[in-house]
Design a binder for these strands. Structure first.
Lengths: 138, 138
DNA sequence: ATTAAAATGCACTTCTGTTGCACGGCTTTT
DNA sequence: AAAAGCCGTGCAACAGAAGTGCATTTTAAT
């Protein structure tokens, strides 16, 4: 818990109890979490607080937003070395159609794409859908 | 207009006036359209009608849905030869941060991705964001 | 301890997508 | 031609998620 506190401080975030709990919760999950997931996990807290906490985390490069195509935005902790606050880390995301979880495949970077003349790429988002390793081993 | 009529019929869609107008509208655009875009273009018609028309088009493989990360679903006509109704056409989509348009780069297929053991890919979505050719030529 | 700033909670709004129901026209059947 | 039924359309209302304004509490600094 002390580690979390210093982690947040290093990122320029005041480590309140709420923020540390949310950070801890997300660190324990191996899949990306939606606002409603956190809402359910922290019924004592208000939706807005969770919402703004995520926004703060995102601004400071603690989490990154994932649009996995389900219609709800997900959030996942950034990898230790990532400079999400400066430049997007272009790893791909995997959404399992069975368990409905979305996970970061941080080792798998989005390949370079050749665009037609005149097109300038600034960012990219790749989501692969299918069956994850947990669900495929039955 | 006669062409549109037979196109729809070939896809198993009854060619009503509304449907032909919507098809025509989308065919004239080179960018993907959201529900609200069509809503604005057809103020005489009801939102629900446009919505259900798109759903019908999608089911029958006339249009495909695009999640470009803006939070609103877009639709674009499928290419002549595409078998969207059977198997997804994995071309990539480009979203322009300047003009906010989303277009299909049908020539650019999503490259094959090597996934970790146990992961099975069924579908993929790749959206590149940046500046489109129209906006970059100033 | 006092004060200022930041975080939290409550209520409300907006936007998008979606569904239920009723009306009306077109098609089909007799 | 009349009757029956299907299908498209429109109206209304709902649901879920994201976002905002303001009052209150908590935290940090002096």
């Amino acid at each position: 818990m002390k580690e979390i506190e210093s982690t947040l401080q290093n990122k320029g975030i005041r480590p309140t109890a709420m923020r540390m709990l949310i950070y801890k919760f997300m660190a324990e999950k191996n899949s990306a979490q939606g606002l409603s997931d956190l809402e359910l996990a922290f019924t004592k807290a208000d939706r807005t607080t969770v919402y703004r906490t995520l926004k703060t985390f995102e601004e400071k490069g603690v989490v990154h937003q994932i649009d996995d195509g389900t219609g709800v935005l997900k959030y996942a902790l950034c990898e230790p070395g990532c400079r999400c606050d400066i430049e997007r880390d272009l790893h791909l995301h995997f959404h399992c159609n069975a368990c409905d979880k979305t996970i970061c495949l941080t080792e798998h970077k989005i390949p370079h794409i050749n665009l037609p003349d005149g097109f300038i790429a600034e960012d990219a988002n790749l989501v692969v859908k299918g069956i994850c390793d947990s669900c495929s081993t039955y």
